Amino acid sequence: MTGTLGTVERLDPLRVTMESFSSKDMAMQAQKKILSHMANKSMVQMFIDDTSSEILDELYRFSKEYSGNRAEAQKVVKDLIKIAVKIGVLFRHNRFSPEEMRLAQDFKKKLHQGAMTAISFYEVEFTFDKTVMSELLTGCRDLLLKLVDSHLTPKSHGRINHVFNHYSDPELLTQLFNPNGPFKNNLNKICTGLNELIEEGKL
């Protein structure tokens, strides 16, 4: 695909220092990089808001502590942000067909269901089911891959797989949702942010 997406796919990797990782700063970098190549500068606006950035930061902190691998934790969140920004560009340029828009709605519903399920598992003790949570996330992954199939490159498809395969790992989810584990505070902040997005009608 040429034009907007050609520009999107040619972006250099986002640069971020190892000492100060901020998903909000990274989203701003991605947005400015993409929009600086577009003719319509009036499009400038945040693709990722403050609440979403806070959720991403907590996902990064959790992944870093869980894996013990700072670079991998950064890469997962970078990939997530790049995909979110690229899909935002596609929407704003009306690149999706009616059939793809139906897929987008299915994805949004599945993502909403996943967020509601995560919040429920957090709020109600002894209800967590790693299989249910993992299947919801892989379902989101599969719908998203179908949505962008004809719009983004295999490299972007790989990023989608990387993000969802990482967070749908049953063992990772078990550790995150362990009510007596070291990640309880991370989960609290993630679910608080998800609640805010749902209440604002953004998720």
Rank of each mutant, 00 (worst) to 15 (best):
F121L: 08
L143S: 15
F126W: 00
H162E: 14
H151A: 02
G193R: 04
N178Y: 11
K189N: 13
K110C: 06
F164G: 13
T138Q: 13
E171I: 14
K146Q: 08
N186W: 11
D169E: 15
V163C: 11
L187D: 01
P170I: 10
D129M: 09
L103N: 01
V124Q: 10
S156D: 15
T192A: 14
K109E: 09
K155S: 14
H112N: 11
T127A: 01
Q113N: 11
D149N: 08
R141C: 07
K184I: 02
I198T: 05
L152G: 02
N195F: 08
P154M: 10
N188E: 15
L152E: 02
L145N: 01
E199G: 03
K110L: 08
F107Y: 12
H157V: 01
A104K: 07
F121T: 08
I190T: 07
S156F: 15
G114E: 01
N180K: 09
I160D: 02
F121W: 09
L152F: 08
A104Y: 09
Q113Y: 08
E100T: 06
L147N: 03
N185F: 12
L111G: 01
N185T: 14
N185G: 02
I198W: 05
E100K: 10
N161M: 06
L137P: 02
D169R: 09
D169V: 11
P182N: 07
V124C: 05
L144V: 09
V148N: 13
T131E: 05
N186C: 12
V132Y: 00
H166E: 03
V148T: 15
C191Q: 02
K108N: 10
H162K: 14
N186K: 07
N178I: 10
Y122E: 05
G181D: 00
F177A: 13
V163E: 12
L145D: 04
Y167R: 00
T131P: 00
P182Y: 07
L137H: 05
H151I: 04
N186M: 08
L145M: 05
I198S: 05
F107M: 01
E123Q: 14
V163Q: 07
F183G: 04
L143I: 13
E171M: 13
F164L: 10
F177Y: 14
M133L: 14
A115K: 05
E100R: 09
K146S: 08
G181R: 04
F177W: 14
E100Y: 10
N186I: 08
H157C: 00
N178M: 07
K184V: 09
P154H: 12
F177V: 10
D142E: 15
E100A: 10
K155R: 11
N186R: 10
L143Y: 14
C140D: 13
C140E: 14
K184C: 00
E99L: 10
F128S: 09
G181K: 03
F107I: 00
Y167H: 05
T192V: 10
F183R: 03
R159L: 05
V132K: 03
G193Q: 06
K189L: 11
S120I: 05
E171N: 13
T153L: 02
V163K: 03
L197C: 08
P179V: 15
L173T: 09
K110R: 12
H157I: 01
Y122H: 12
K184L: 01
N188P: 03
F107P: 07
N178Q: 08
T153E: 00
P170L: 09
I119Q: 04
F107L: 07
N185M: 09
K110A: 11
K108Q: 14
F121K: 06
H157Y: 00
L172Y: 00
L147F: 06
